[in-house]
Structure formats: structure tokens, C-alpha cells
């Protein structure tokens, strides 16, 4: 499996991490896995919600040392 593409949204506030993810998705292929790094708590709820709404696959959210890692797969 290819490595996950990291989208570094650390330090940015809503909707910054989501917008950075969308930019990264534009240059990704269907099936690619991406991982958003965010320190914005709102994005931790909003990004899975957005993925569900637009139809990309949400994989998981983990937290380490104050940074959330939101993993997903481009599905369309």
C-alpha cells in the first residue's frame, strides 16, 4: 500500500484544515489515502462530517501530543 499523503493543517483554524484537505484531494487519485494533521478541535468533528456528506471514505481519527490525525480515502 502506498504511503498516506500528509496534509499539515496544524496551527490553522476552521475551516483552514478542511480547505487544505480539499486542495490535496484535487491532486490525488481515487483510492489514495490521506492523513490530515490538525490542532483545531472543530475540524476533528467537521472533517468526518464533510467526508460523509460528499462521499469520501473516513478511516479513523487518532490523537497524539495535541495533534489529531484524521485518515481518509479518496473515493470519487
Amino acid at each position: 500500500m502506498a504511503e498516506r499523503k500528509i496534509v499539515d493543517g496544524r496551527g490553522s483554524f476552521c475551516p483552514g484544515p478542511l480547505m487544505e484537505l480539499i486542495v490535496a484531494l484535487k491532486s490525488s487519485q481515487i483510492g489514495d489515502e490521506l492523513e490530515v494533521l490538525s490542532t483545531d478541535k472543530g475540524s476533528v468533528n467537521d472533517i468526518p462530517e464533510w467526508l460523509n456528506k460528499v462521499g469520501h471514505a473516513y478511516i479513523s481519527t487518532t490523537e497524539a501530543e495535541g495533534v489529531w490525525h484524521i485518515a481518509l480515502r479518496k473515493s470519487k
Binding site: G11, S12, F13, P15, G16, M19, I22, V23, K26
Partner: peptide, 17 residues
């Protein structure tokens, strides 16, 4: 004083993305 996306950038992204 925080790293919030600038409103003009967001409007432009609304159009482009």
C-alpha cells in the same frame, strides 16, 4: 492574532474549489 484563513482567501477558495 490567530492563524485563521483570511476572508478573501476563503471567498476565492469558495469559487475555485
Amino acid at each position: 492574532s490567530h492563524k485563521v484563513p483570511e476572508f478573501k482567501t476563503l471567498f476565492e477558495q469558495a469559487v475555485e474549489l
